[in-house]
């Protein structure tokens, strides 16, 4: 079972929710169960490890393939620049230039070069870290500073977890990046349900609508909502959820104590155990939502 914690707006509390849900799931797993996994797919700003300190067992480099032109073989025909859709190759009369930062690593230039002058070489773009902590398997993807594309690192994280059989019967919780663009799609792809975290403000509502469009309408996932920093002051998020038939599975109040625990890197259910039942109920509800939708 794969559950993804996502949001349109950033900073609504995805990591706060994902870490506490995972810790509650870890406590529940009995000896014979496979360990639940928590994957940090917010590879541009991975923060799970600041809350759940992992014993790292493995680090895998994430690389992308970029073309290298062998000047001795190049006939300057310009085919590579013609087939490249990302303007990553400039074919000049006597020289062929590659702009690696624009390359999407599709390999088309190497395939199409009639002189066989293009090879592809791996270039580091990030890493995946795998480890264990507190009855949990932990995986983290990290995009290298200066690299543009987050999606391949997210793909690599999911792939490495799958390769080690983390998925199987056990529960996997994925902390997604914010927004509604391609990295979010990659984090959500293959999920059994999504929990969208928002806050009861006009920004929260606006971005929740966009996240619902992605998770429910484009990807067809069962979707629940978590309302964080609920000060009771703005009912428009709850009204929207009621109107759209989206179940609100978790509510957290606007409380200084929660913000303080978060600011120091303490998972909420550890710092304030009174919230444990809230997260247990939310996990049950989310699992039920995912199970209902199973074929």
């Amino acid at each position: 079972m794969r559950l993804v914690i996502a949001s349109g707006k950033g900073g609504t509390g995805k990591t706060l929710v994902a870490t506490s849900l995972a810790l509650v799931a870890a406590e529940r797993a009995t000896g014979s169960d496979a360990l639940p996994a928590l994957l940090d797919a917010d590879v541009e700003a991975p923060n799970v490890a600041l809350f759940v300190r992992a014993e790292v067992s493995e680090t895998v480099a994430v690389e992308r393939l970029v073309p290298v032109v062998n000047a001795a073989l190049c006939t300057h025909c310009g085919r590579c620049a013609e087939v490249c859709q990302f303007n990553a190759i400039a074919a000049l009369p006597t020289q062929t230039l590659v702009f690696a930062e624009l390359c999407h690593g599709c390999g088309s230039c190497a395939l199409q070069c009639p002189a066989g002058a293009i090879t592809e070489e791996p270039q580091p773009m990030g890493r995946v870290t795998l480890g264990q902590a507190a009855g949990l398997r932990l995986g983290e993807g990290e995009l290298q500073v200066g690299e543009a594309m987050a999606t391949p690192v997210i793909r690599a994280l999911k792939h490495e977890a799958q390769r080690r059989g983390w998925d199987g019967e056990a529960l996997t919780i994925i902390d997604a990046p914010p927004g509604t663009a391609c990295p979010v799609i990659e984090a959500l792809r293959g999920a059994d349900a999504a929990l969208l975290v928002t806050e009861p403000t006009p920004f929260g509502l606006h971005d929740l609508r966009m996240a619902v469009e992605v998770a429910r309408d484009v990807l067809g996932l069962p979707v629940g909502v978590a309302i964080n920093r609920d000060d009771g002051g703005d009912g428009s998020v709850a009204a929207y959820c009621a109107q759209e038939g989206l179940p609100v599975l978790l509510r957290l109040p606007l409380e200084r104590e929660i913000a303080a625990a978060y600011s120091d890197g303490q998972p909420l259910v550890t710092a304030l155990p009174r919230y444990r039942p809230t997260f247990e109920a939310a996990l049950d509800a989310l699992l039920a939502l995912a199970e209902e939708a199973q074929p």
Binding site: A45, L50, A150, A181, D264, G265
Partner: peptide, 30 residues
């Protein structure tokens, strides 16, 4: 936008100054 990937690179390139709004939390610092 949040993050460090392509939309952020496109937003920052060629600007005269980047003002970073930071939050006093472990995640914010990181």
């Amino acid at each position: 936008s949040p993050g460090i990937g392509c939309p952020v690179i496109a937003a920052v390139t060629g600007a005269d100054l980047a003002l970073m709004v930071a939050e006093p939390t472990v995640s914010g610092q990181h």
